[in-house]
Amino acid sequence: MKRTIIATVNNNSGVMNRITGLFARRQFNIESITVGMTENPEISRMTFVVNVDNERGLDQVIKQLNKQVDVLKVRDITDDSIIARELALIKVVAAPQHRGEISALAEPFRATVVDVGRESITLQVTGDQQKVEALIDLLKPYGIKELARTGITAFKRGAVKSDFETPKHSILN
């Protein structure tokens, strides 16, 4: 199962190495990993998308991360209300007659054309993983020359909308 885990870590040299080394030696399967500074320059935030077989695997990922001295906090936010975004740059084969078509495809995704070459255009799209993948799928028939994805970065929403309270006795259930 795929889980999204965020960690705040000390912004020390070598911390990335500690984390990726940990994943490699414990045979944890990472799909993506992103890292960047937080509002506090001494602390970085990492977002991992990991593939684990079961609850025990997930438990180990979180516990092993927690054991690292430079890791301050770890959370599995998969089931929380979160904002998760990734950015993808997609270079698509685009003969002049196809450019309009591709732009039209990109529009509902709010993807923007960031570069145009003689035989290709490059689109930039931001969104959750599904959205990015949907656009990539649509562009595949044209021929994707190059693809670069940042991986998911995420955090919890500020104002968490409380779950709609279903009355205990209702004709609906």
Binding site: R56, D59, K63
Partner: peptide, 11 residues
């Protein structure tokens, strides 16, 4: 004392 050992090999 190491929570990572609990449940690692044995439920």
């Amino acid at each position: 004392i190491d929570p990572a050992e609990i449940g690692k090999n044995i439920e």
